[in-house]
Amino acid sequence: MTDMPDRPSAIARRTFLLTGAAAGLSTALPLGAMADAADADAAIREIFGDKPINDGRVSVKLPPIAENGNSVAITVSAESPMSFDDHVTRMAIVSPRNPIADIALFKLGPRAGKAEISTRIRMAGTQRIRCVAEMSDGSLWQGSASTVVTLAACLIG
């Protein structure tokens, strides 16, 4: 906890979450145990470092409403020629509201041909999911999309 003094609240929350889970208290997780926007920022910094993030080039497709947060279809894509000199190297999906901000980190290369990935994620409530892409020149780009979740994952499902 002391090695990351710049974001004590996020770490304290994580620690609390882990402690609670370890003690078998997960049924009674208070809302405060969820990640928040600061945790999402911290997760992104942990993956990509402290570089500035530009808006654009990345798009996130989610349904406007999801009845069940246990499985929500998501497609993330980045505009890139995917050539040897100019391609997407990594893409991260991050949540500002799930118990853990990180959802997935994908590693691609010029051989992907197309920077587009679809999967299904859990959503512990209505939120705006973010995707950050790192290009081969080191620049970071982001996009986001939000979904209204009527039945949250994790605590119920």
């Binding site: 949540s95 959802i103 590693k107 691609l108 051989r111 990935i117 999967t119 299904r120 859990r122």
Partner: peptide, 28 residues
């Protein structure tokens, strides 16, 4: 594929049960 890792993913509990991924690669 073709002696190289063409796609990698680090997954967390935020990925739904029975994980499915759709992605692309160039045929070589």
């Amino acid at each position: 594929y073709d002696s190289e890792t063409v796609f990698e993913a680090d997954l967390h509990p935020g990925i739904a049960a029975n994980p499915i991924f759709t992605f692309y690669t160039r045929a070589t």
